[in-house]
Design a protein around this nucleic acid. Structure first.
Lengths: 155, 155
DNA sequence: CGCTAGCGTACCCTTTACGTCAACTTGGGA
DNA sequence: TCCCAAGTTGACGTAAAGGGTACGCTAGCG
């Protein structure tokens, strides 16, 4: 069996476009552990570690936090068949998907609202400054420095 | 001219469903200032302050950060005609709208991707654990504890 | 006068995913 | 052998928008 080749931290940095701080941070969290540094002071990483970092990045891309990822890894250590972990992952994915759908609904409403307001402010229907003493909206005789947005009528 | 009526901080709390800590925090940031406390130790707020808080909440709802709001207020202090501020506001709104549109595009892609993955993981096509020695994806003879997600094929 | 809810200041804490020193130590090429 | 880029530990900082607590003072009503 040939010697497993190993990477130095800087190589990971270049591979993934992350910083060495990140790698060490992941180690702190127990997400990865470097190979035995036997004697050397410098960390060495196996192919396995590389894959693990890729995995972390993928899960991160799908919206899992590092602590969720950590929990999954923890699970994996106890459950070598993978069934429980897969179940947990499915749950997480569904959960993130639900959240995303909810976010999208909110975002749509927000976009609609905001585009209406953009139009208003460009037509000067929405004042930031009270226009002066005769301002009908304000309840003060003198100038005021805030004025409410025109409320978007329910369509 | 009748005496301007004033509110105590607790009243604002009840009005807006915010905490007194928040009100004082806004004061710290210079977003609002209470009326002159002349003599009293307790803050008093005018109608003006009330409107201002409403204004802050509206701008916050449209995605402006407190520091952006602060910058606008700062502008308003210098520019009493309102033209510059309105311009600034329009720019901010457009900017937030653009960001929102971009976020929505990303979110849509994310949702599509993730729903595909949900399906995969439920069909057990996406392993968290390597299934064992015969695993075709892994490059090691022994078990490994991470395996890459199946990559979603470009449709 | 006395009570107590309300208000005051001042300080640290939260979350997430690292960034940024500082001050050394080490590894590997010339 | 020498040198310097690369690596090390450890501590502290950052953003955002307040939350939480401690502990003391006050306003205003009966």
């Amino acid at each position: 069996m040939e010697k497993e080749n190993s990477y130095r931290i800087g190589e990971l940095v270049r591979m993934f476009g992350i910083t060495s701080r990140t790698v060490r941070f992941y180690e702190e969290l127990g997400l990865i552990e470097s190979m035995d540094r036997d004697g050397s002071e410098h960390r060495r990483y196996s192919e396995r570690n590389v894959i693990r970092i890729k995995r972390i990045q993928q899960l991160k891309d799908y919206g899992l936090t590092l602590s969720e990822i950590s929990a999954l890894f923890e699970m994996a250590r106890a459950d070598r068949t993978g069934a429980t972990v897969r179940e947990g992952l499915a749950v997480k994915y569904r959960q993130k998907l639900d959240e995303a759908l909810k976010r999208r609904a909110q975002l749509d409403a927000y976009i609609e609202d905001l585009s209406w307001h953009v139009e208003q402010v460009e037509r000067a229907n929405d004042f930031f400054e009270c226009p002066g003493a005769s301002c009908a909206t304000c309840r003060w005789a003198e100038r005021c420095d805030v004025r409410l947005l025109v409320k978007r009528p329910a369509s």
